[in-house]
Simulated scan of single mutants.
Amino acid sequence: MFGYTFYWSMVWDKLPELVEGARTTLTLTVLSMIIGTLVALALTLLRRQGKGPGYTLATTWVEVARNTPALFQVYMIYFGLGALGLHFSSYLAMLLALSFNNAGYLAEIFRGGLQAIPKQQHTAARSLGLSSFAAYTHVVFPQLFRVVYFPYVNQLNWALLNSSLGMIIGLRELTGATQAAQSESFRTFEFFLVAAAMYYVMSKLIEGGARFTFWRVFKG
């Protein structure tokens, strides 16, 4: 097509590096979602207070995370904090930036989910002698995760794709590994076509796994 000659052998030679980059992408995505979920739950509870320092902190976090580019957040953590003497490796900086971003979006998802759960659920649990923390963890949050399950999966996929920003700070996740591999051969189309296919497969596996898990856990 258009006189272009494909050289796939160069891609196959570098395939182990791309697979290792994909592994880094997946671990980064999973870890950032775990951290983001824990932080988001705390932010959600703080925002429910309606006032006070905790509410202000949580609201500021959500507003900044949701209304600034993820690229800006990566730069601020890797370069901005570095200028202040806080230096992080590429992997840790990307993990912090992705977790920060996830927490902001998930906090808003959880806030909407909590609005769908009657407040009487928490009140009833408290009347049975549970502490406020136990009422949330044993009564409210299990219902919450069912309500927000698919928006949560969408954020997981979004985190997977956002991890590609690690390339700009030298991280060898899938995009970074692809960029490094193609820079040696200049076969940009072949390398990035394979990388795109790998992202597509990972995304579809997450989507399929999520649907199967939902059916087994909530419908079984």
Rank of each mutant, 00 (worst) to 15 (best):
I34P: 03
G36P: 08
G21Y: 04
F72G: 02
P53E: 06
A58I: 05
T68F: 02
P16T: 11
L46T: 04
T27Q: 13
Y55F: 12
L18Q: 07
L31I: 14
L28C: 03
T56A: 13
G21F: 02
T24E: 09
T25M: 10
A40Y: 11
F72E: 00
P69W: 11
L41Q: 01
T37V: 06
P16R: 15
A22P: 15
E20I: 14
T29G: 09
T59D: 14
W61N: 02
A65Y: 00
A70C: 06
A40G: 04
P69T: 14
V19W: 09
L31Q: 03
R66H: 02
A40T: 03
L28P: 01
K51Q: 10
A58T: 07
L71K: 05
L57H: 06
Q73R: 07
M76P: 00
R23W: 08
V39R: 08
I35Y: 05
L46D: 02
G52Y: 08
E63Y: 06
R48K: 12
L43N: 09
L45Q: 05
V74C: 01
P53V: 04
P53D: 10
I35Q: 03
P53Y: 07
T37E: 04
V62G: 06
L43E: 05
V19P: 04
G50D: 02
G52T: 08
L38C: 13
G21C: 01
I35N: 01
W61I: 02
R23A: 06
K51Y: 13
L26C: 14
E20N: 12
F72I: 14
K14T: 15
M76D: 00
L26W: 11
E17Y: 10
V64K: 00
A70R: 00
T25E: 15
T59C: 07
V39I: 09
T37N: 08
Y55R: 00
A22S: 08
L45M: 12
Q49M: 11
L15N: 09
Y55V: 00
T27W: 13
R23D: 13
A70L: 12
K14S: 09
R23L: 14
K14W: 12
M76W: 10
G21V: 01
T37I: 04
L18D: 06
P69S: 03
P69M: 10
G52N: 13
R23H: 08
M33Y: 06
E63D: 14
L43R: 15
V30E: 04
Q49A: 14
L26A: 12
L46P: 02
W61S: 03
K51W: 06
L26Y: 14
V62A: 10
N67S: 12
T56P: 00
L57R: 07
T25P: 10
T44G: 13
T24D: 04
A58F: 14
